[in-house]
Nucleic acid binder design. Structure first.
Ligand SMILES: [Mn+2]
Ligand SMILES: [Mn+2]
Ligand SMILES: [Zn+2]
Ligand SMILES: [Zn+2]
Lengths: 138, 138
DNA sequence: CGTTTGACTTAGACAAAGTCCATTGTAGGA
DNA sequence: TCCTACAATGGACTTTGTCTAAGTCAAACG
């Protein structure tokens, strides 16, 4: 993702080996790694990178809107580089596998005014749960 | 909720002061307390109740299907006594207030087969986010 | 009722996920 | 090349939750 790195440099980011490695690890489709998984993979490329730096960098990428935080399970937060096209998630209840999905329809329209309690509603997250092919056949 | 206590007794639960207090605390509409909040309120009624017992009791209530676990934010799990009528949640992004909502429509039907990746989809959670009236005016 | 017993509760150790801070290092401009 | 503000580091600390060994008590039984 030199796209990403280019954009970040443009935003005044100081480019360091650590930040480059974190950005490299967060690359691909259906990628939803925990901070610890990002750290392990980053260590493979740059052994001296610290946990704190991984957390810092992930936090910065999130506030820049380049990465999304996803909390599909109650354990660690997951980091999603697919922040450009809005999407939702399909999660295997047994093994935790996560896929990006794009449902049709607009759930925002499905919430009547009477059910909004005066809130200004700006966003909807939809999480589908079920069993992945592997777990269903086992 | 003597309803609940009655049902639990019917299921062979030994009725203790601790369990009664936890069940009392989990009572009402739009109630979504964390385990620690349940513990604080339980301590007010029964000072010697322990954290472990609160966690144990909440876990049992969840496996009995009497209480739902809700993870609207990435912090602590919340416990929802409104397990009888299915519903979704509306969350204030600033102060964390949570309301139960009942959207129209069926999000399951909005996920095309091509977007299911072979999963057996059994459940959908929808979380609406926005600002509550208080936070919007501030 | 009093006894008995296994289910229940407790305190505290432990673990996982994440935050914070003082110190040390360095990217990138002058 | 030098300087310095920004970034990285390790480790202490916090929060949330789990586990266990030992003590307690609800309720079944007589
Ligand atoms: Mn995603
Ligand atoms: Mn609810
Ligand atoms: Zn699976
Ligand atoms: Zn609010």
């Amino acid at each position: 993702m030199s796209d990403l790195l280019e954009r970040l440099r443009g935003r005044g980011w100081r480019m360091t080996a650590q930040r480059r490695v974190v950005a490299e690890v967060l690359n691909g489709e259906h990628v939803h790694l925990t901070a610890d998984e990002v750290h392990s993979r980053a260590v493979a490329k740059l052994p001296e990178i610290s946990r704190a730096t991984v957390y810092n960098t992930l936090g910065e990428l999130v506030s820049l809107g380049e990465v999304l935080e996803v909390t599909t399970d109650k354990r660690a937060k997951r980091y999603d580089p697919n922040a450009h096209r809005p999407h939702h998630h399909l999660v295997c209840a047994r093994c935790g596998a996560i896929r990006d999905v794009h449902p049709t329809g607009n759930p925002l329209a499905d919430l009547p005014d009477a059910e909004r309690f005066g809130f200004t509603v700006s966003d909807v997250e939809v999480t589908y749960r079920g069993l992945c092919p592997d777990c269903a056949s086992a």
